[in-house]
């Protein structure tokens, strides 16, 4: 009996915690959006954050993009080869990359390399009283820290996504050439023909939303950190888990909004 009581208590407490942090994250996002009116005066910080996000994720993005392209090309290509249709590989690659793989993979990379670091950085500032110091100086942490990061990721995730799509397609071309004997010019022509305006803008829109989600979750987890280094670690971990889930869930709903019936 006591055990059950404890179980209920813990489950309830966890649920309330989740509601609490979700509400906090949404409010934080709204306040950050409001402070976007001050974006111009924070342009240097925004560029700095964009630069950090770009540099931190560049190498991983490149490797993941190439290998995802190669894997897709190989897996699908082998099936296509059975029907002598391997020349269509370019269509398939560009379609899957723009619609789903590009935004999703980029989102995951940014979560792992940029979002986690963001949560750790802001969490460290929180537990070492730097956020309190800002508040004492009448400097809004939302305007000073969150808004620039939000804008930076909202811009950088789509840019990285385009880069990942391009590089993934090139990765696909390499495998198509060496494994499936599809010449580069045929592959290229298929790709150009298969690029769809809708798939592209939906993909980019998705990555834009992912950028906003990742920044909002990372910052809110950081700002909620307590208990020294332990709390910073917990904030980082929660950021990765929560962002990953949200990117998957929101990604599905964006897809179903544009393509569902």
């Amino acid at each position: 009996m006591k055990y059950f009581k404890n179980l209920f208590y813990l489950t309830g407490k966890r649920l309330i915690d989740i509601l609490d942090i979700s509400g906090f994250t949404i409010l934080l996002l709204l306040r950050a959006l409001y402070f976007c009116k001050n974006a111009f005066s924070k342009r240097r910080e925004i560029f700095k954050q964009m630069y950090i996000a770009g540099v931190k994720s560049f190498i991983v993005c490149s490797l993941v993009a190439i290998f995802i392209g190669m894997i897709l090309s190989l897996q699908v290509g082998i099936e296509l080869q059975r029907f002598q249709q391997q020349s269509l590989i370019g269509d398939l690659l560009i379609t899957t990359m723009t619609r789903e793989m590009g935004p999703l993979m980029t989102g995951i990379i940014i979560i792992a390399s940029v979002g986690s670091a963001m949560a750790a950085e802001i969490g460290t500032m929180k537990v070492s009283e730097e956020i309190d110091a800002l508040e004492m100086m009448s400097i809004s942490p939302v305007k000073f820290l969150v808004m620039p990061r939000l804008i930076a990721l909202a811009v950088m995730v789509p840019i990285s996504t385009i880069y990942v799509i391009a590089l993934g397609t090139i990765g696909g071309a390499i495998v198509a050439y060496f494994q499936l004997n599809v010449p580069y010019d045929i592959y290229y022509n298929r790709v150009v023909q298969a690029i769809r305006f809708k798939a592209t803008y939906v993909g980019i829109f998705k990555s834009f939303i992912f950028g906003i989600i990742i920044a909002a979750i990372s910052c809110s987890q950081g700002l909620k950190a307590t208990n020294g280094a332990l709390g910073v670690g917990k904030a980082t971990r929660s950021t990765v888990v929560a962002s990953f889930l949200m990117v998957l869930i929101v990604g599905y709903f964006i897809t179903s909004f544009f393509y569902g019936k």
Binding site: S128, E129, E130, L134, M136
Partner: peptide, 19 residues
């Protein structure tokens, strides 16, 4: 709070400088 803090400052135990 902001108004009250305009004329108030706190020297934190660990400094709390923006790192």
């Amino acid at each position: 709070k902001e108004k009250l803090r305009k004329k108030m400052g706190i020297v934190f135990q660990s400094g709390a400088l923006i790192n």
